[in-house]
Design a protein around this nucleic acid. Structure first.
Ligand SMILES: NC(=O)c1ccc[n+]([C@@H]2O[C@H](COP(=O)([O-])OP(=O)(O)OC[C@H]3O[C@@H](n4cnc5c(N)ncnc54)[C@H](O)[C@@H]3O)[C@@H](O)[C@H]2O)c1
Ligand SMILES: NC(=O)c1ccc[n+]([C@@H]2O[C@H](COP(=O)([O-])OP(=O)(O)OC[C@H]3O[C@@H](n4cnc5c(N)ncnc54)[C@H](O)[C@@H]3O)[C@@H](O)[C@H]2O)c1
Lengths: 231, 231
DNA sequence: TTTGCCACGTGAAACATATCACAAGCACTT
DNA sequence: AAGTGCTTGTGATATGTTTCACGTGGCAAA
């Protein structure tokens, strides 16, 4: 019961669950009560078989011949993803990006909230952004331990990112979302996700260049590999 | 130049090339002239075999028994990824995130530049952010066509994102980097990448919850999967 | 030249993920 | 009660990616 009953799901399946979750929330707002794997796949850009397989990693939530009840399937997704626990998050680096992250309403909407922010710049410290007071770095450890914060966002310059990461880990943070363009080193019991815009943009650049090369070189065939799955 | 001679590379291999590229740039700044697949793998968090395989999709750039010359390998990465063409980019949505993106120095450093910005809010239009004048949406099509812009960043609210995307595609844009939490629909000849913070954060949340479940395997942990929480 | 060592490049094996195809199950009708 | 139509859940299959292991070529020193 407690731990995810079936075989371990691929990373990409988990990410798709997030999309299903959000789509289900949207459907519910529209008053839709039932949805099929076919319908869900159209809304999320997946395939029906993929949707069913993704869900099957965690249980069987539908009824044959009918589909899935939006309400209960959403509840299951929330449970699996750990949403609704209202995870408190810490932010380090309240610059251009950090300020935008503090203003991002997508976090609270999904049950996550930035409750503490830190910066090394004395001019930033003490300022209030979105009801959050920016604290100096020397308060990071105690604050995070006191509030039992397990998740943190790193939005400092690349050269400062590894140091900040170590401070966060020492303070007890278990999950990191890094925005600095650098590959952070973390111990195996700390989970790391990165948002790296250079990688995204250069991947698009590659695809564009490739499609030009293919079109110019041989056949008129354009690369059918259209969409990039988020990740 | 090189018409990508070998079999097609996995998506993830391309993304790793971006990391290799950035690492090589860093090595070069440090005056390092040669690097082995082993060394490169340590710096990027990959494996030596993975590095060699990734590179092998595009050619053989090293010398056996020696390794790779940093300078030339970097040049090859730049060629493959299409960096250095100085791709001009357009930004739509100059809000919290859009303003941060305009200020992001990682783009110009990697050879990409936001040269045009658009917003539907009359109060934003006309303002200047980082030498870029914010233009109204009705100038989007002509501006993008005139400047032959092929890549665009979408930083508008989710409900406006699909409409903006269509306008961009109609104007001739071939590559889109989307920040709105929604799965955009694009034709197969348009390339799409997405940065979706909810997916990242929920993935971390999943890992954290999973690790807790595993560690507390015997315990009568709360979370029962059958427990449907009303939203 | 020969010897010894090194690290690349690459087939082949192992592993992971996605897709197919259909039996099983449910709702509804007759 | 049996029939019809529909959709799930899942073995089996196909496809894709990573890892292994070693032949190959290259450098340096004796
Ligand atoms: N601006 C963007 O849109 C954007 C997009 C993607 C990634 N990033 C990355 O995010 C990071 C921040 O970008 P930004 O544009 O907000 O830069 P910024 O310079 O505006 O902000 C960085 C902030 O970090 C603080 N800081 C610096 N060193 C610190 C330290 N050791 N400890 C704590 N705080 C420290 C600075 O005082 C500053 O407030 C960079 O790594 C950047 O590459 C930025
Ligand atoms: N703020 C963040 O840190 C953050 C992070 C990740 C993703 N996002 C996403 O990025 C998008 C923008 O976020 P934000 O925080 O900057 O919001 P914001 O409200 O500050 O900015 C949105 C901007 O888009 C403009 N806009 C609205 N409709 C438009 C239209 N039809 N055409 C052109 N412009 C239009 C608005 O005038 C505004 O300037 C949202 O989808 C958000 O979910 C934001």
């Amino acid at each position: 019961m407690s731990p995810l009953p079936r075989g371990k799901a691929p990373q990409m399946a988990i990410r798709r669950l997030s999309m299903y979750y959000r789509t289900l929330a949207s459907l519910r707002e529209q008053g839709v009560e039932n949805v099929s794997s076919e319908h869900l796949s159209e809304l999320t850009g997946s395939t029906a078989a993929q949707v069913r397989r993704d869900l099957a990693y965690f249980g069987s939530f539908g009824r044959r011949g009918v589909g899935y009840e939006v309400r209960t399937l959403q509840a299951h997704m929330r449970e699996i993803l750990g949403i609704g626990q209202g995870w408190p998050m810490a932010l380090v680096g309240v610059g251009n990006l950090g300020s935008a992250l503090l203003a991002y309403d997508g976090f609270p909407r999904q049950g996550f909230r930035i409750v503490e922010a830190f910066d090394s710049d004395p001019r930033r410290v003490g300022t209030v952004v979105r009801d959050v007071v920016v604290k100096p770095m020397d308060q990071l450890r105690d604050t995070i331990q006191a509030r039992k914060i397990a998740m943190a966002l790193v939005a400092v310059p690349a050269k400062a990112a590894q140091g900040v990461t170590q401070q966060l880990i020492d303070a007890g943070v278990r999950c990191l979302l890094n925005f600095a363009p650098i590959s952070l080193k973390v111990p195996p019991d700390v989970y790391l996700a990165s948002v790296d815009l250079s990688i995204e943009v250069e991947y698009l650049s590659y695809l564009l260049r490739e499609s030009v090369a293919v079109n110019a070189d041989s056949g008129p065939e354009l690369t059918g590999l259209g969409n990039t799955v988020p990740g």
